[in-house]
């Protein structure tokens, strides 16, 4: 039933934005952003549930903690960066949106650095006798 609430909030917000946009475009943008944040927060609980299940599975399967933390961080970075980029793009600031995306990509790559170093070190250890 939550999808109906989310869709309802979205449709109402869209109508309001359409109404306000003629008079006050700034408020229209603020309303759109706020609506987006509300939907995002409403869904955050669901994401938390999913992550909890995954965490449980991971601990049961004895997945390395480093791997799991990295994955979760990647998901979080991707979501937040995406959200910020979309909001800025809605406001007509495509360049800022692309910068936010760039930051997100960079941070995801930084996440991979410890793993890459471990793999490279291992390869170097294996190669010379």
């Amino acid at each position: 039933m939550e999808i109906i609430q989310v869709v309802g909030i979205g449709i109402i917000a869209t109508f309001l934005v359409l109404v306000i946009k003629e008079q006050k475009p700034v408020f229209a943008f603020l309303l759109a952003t706020f609506t987006g944040i509300v939907i995002f927060i409403a869904l955050a609980g669901k994401i938390a549930e999913v992550i909890r299940v995954l965490e449980h599975l991971a601990t049961q399967a004895r997945v390395n903690n480093l791997f799991f933390e990295t994955i979760l961080k990647i998901v979080g970075i991707a979501y937040i960066a995406e959200f910020g980029a979309q909001v800025t793009r809605d406001a007509g600031q495509g360049s800022i949106a692309s910068k936010i995306e760039l930051a997100g990509k960079l941070l995801i790559m930084v996440m991979a650095i410890p793993i890459i170093t471990v793999i490279i070190e291992t390869v170097i250890q294996i190669l010379p006798a």
Partner: peptide
């Protein structure tokens, strides 16, 4: 889960590395 395709390549790379680590 990923929201758009611009992030996909990066995330795939990192996930691939993690899986390689797990295998190794």
């Amino acid at each position: 889960l990923l929201p758009n395709h611009s992030m996909e390549r990066y995330v795939k790379l990192v996930m691939g590395l993690i899986i390689i680590m797990a295998i190794l």
